[in-house]
Design a protein around this nucleic acid. Structure first.
Length: 114
DNA sequence: CCAATGACCGTAA
DNA sequence: GTTACGGCCATTG
């Protein structure tokens, strides 16, 4: 199944304030578990224009690390503003903040991926 | 139109 | 801990 940027944005918009998700987690919930890289491509496109306020800063890599090379400090600042602790290595505690299960449950409740 | 372009991840050595 | 590699594909200049 082809995965569009909008599919990615739809899931990212469901990440609650003060929580994060990994690129691979977003890919999984989009139904394309091997497309983590593609999630990065979709978020990269937001640098040019982010009309619908997609909360890109809530996506980090699977280790909890901020891997955005364009605006890492802005991402850190936005996360901290929401109460997410970011350490000196630009990492967050995934055990504590990963919202994948939460968002997955919300997707199930709201009936599938649309 | 079409080739280049990208914020990744899991596995293996 | 390290490097390497394949999977992934819509968007855009």
């Amino acid at each position: 199944m082809p995965l569009t940027f909008e599919d990615v944005y739809r899931v990212v918009r469901l990440i609650p304030k003060g929580r994060v998700m990994s690129y691979s987690g977003v890919a999984r919930l989009c139904g394309a578990p091997r497309s983590a890289r593609y999630v990065g491509f979709a978020l990269h496109a937001l640098l040019h224009r982010n009309p619908r306020g997609v909360p890109w800063w809530r996506v980090v890599n699977v280790h909890g690390r901020i891997s955005n090379i364009y605006a890492p400090l802005e991402q850190q600042r936005r996360l901290e503003a929401e109460g997410v602790q970011v350490d000196e290595a630009l990492r967050v505690d995934m055990q504590r903040y990963d919202a994948e299960e939460l968002v997955a449950a919300r997707l199930r409740t709201h009936r599938s991926l649309r």
